[in-house]
Computed example of a mutant assay.
Amino acid sequence: MATSKLQAFLNHPAGPKTIHFWAPTFKWGISIANIADFAKPPEKLSYPQQIAVTATGLVWSRYSTVITPKNWNLFSVNVAMAGTGIYQLSRKLRQDYFSEKEEAVAKE
């Protein structure tokens, strides 16, 4: 039974014998790099970069659910990209637009 599941995985149209497997697998590097940037101060984050990561994640997550065959590796990496991008954008927005108000209130 395990052999048949392994054979099914290896011979899947989006399996490891195709670019449809390896492209999303290497794309995980972007999400991992974005996770590593969680330790970076928000003022060093880039709006254009994080908007691009978020938009790419959202658009390609949707695409991966409407293509045939379903590519769950592509779906999962893009959900991770969208999630990390949204988190980084929220950090940047909080630092740029909401921390000043908190500082002003604290000074009063």
Rank of each mutant, 00 (worst) to 15 (best):
M1L: 02
M1N: 00
M1W: 00
A2G: 01
A2E: 00
A2I: 07
S4T: 05
S4Y: 00
S4V: 05
K5M: 02
K5R: 04
K5G: 00
L6M: 03
L6K: 01
A8L: 00
F9W: 09
N11F: 03
P13I: 14
A14T: 13
A14R: 06
P16W: 11
K17H: 12
K17F: 10
T18F: 03
I19R: 04
H20L: 05
H20G: 10
F21V: 07
F21K: 11
A23G: 03
A23I: 15
A23W: 06
P24E: 02
P24I: 01
T25M: 08
T25L: 14
F26R: 03
K27R: 08
K27H: 05
K27S: 12
W28A: 10
W28K: 02
G29P: 01
G29S: 05
G29R: 02
I30Y: 04
I30V: 15
S31C: 02
I32S: 03
I32A: 08
I35T: 07
A36E: 03
D37F: 05
A39D: 04
A39F: 04
P41C: 07
P42F: 09
P42H: 06
P42S: 14
E43Q: 13
E43V: 13
E43A: 11
K44H: 09
L45I: 06
L45Q: 05
S46C: 10
Y47F: 14
P48Y: 10
P48L: 14
P48S: 13
P48F: 13
Q49D: 05
Q49M: 15
Q49C: 09
Q50A: 09
I51A: 09
A52R: 12
T54R: 08
A55R: 11
T56F: 11
G57H: 05
V59M: 11
W60S: 11
S61R: 10
S61C: 09
Y63F: 12
T65P: 00
T65K: 04
V66D: 01
V66Q: 03
T68D: 04
K70N: 02
N71Y: 02
W72C: 01
W72P: 01
L74T: 03
F75Q: 04
F75L: 12
S76T: 10
V77C: 07
V77F: 06
N78H: 10
V79G: 05
A80L: 09
A80I: 06
M81P: 01
M81Y: 00
A82I: 12
A82M: 09
G83Q: 00
T84R: 01
G85I: 15
Y87C: 02
Y87R: 10
Y87Q: 00
L89S: 08
L89P: 06
S90N: 07
S90P: 02
S90I: 15
S90G: 01
R91I: 13
R91M: 13
K92E: 02
L93E: 04
L93Y: 12
L93R: 10
R94C: 09
Q95W: 03
Q95L: 03
D96V: 05
Y97T: 08
F98V: 15
E102T: 13
E102V: 15
E103Y: 07
E103G: 08
A104C: 09
A106K: 15
A106M: 15
K107T: 14
K107S: 14
K107Q: 15
K107C: 06
E108N: 13
E108K: 15
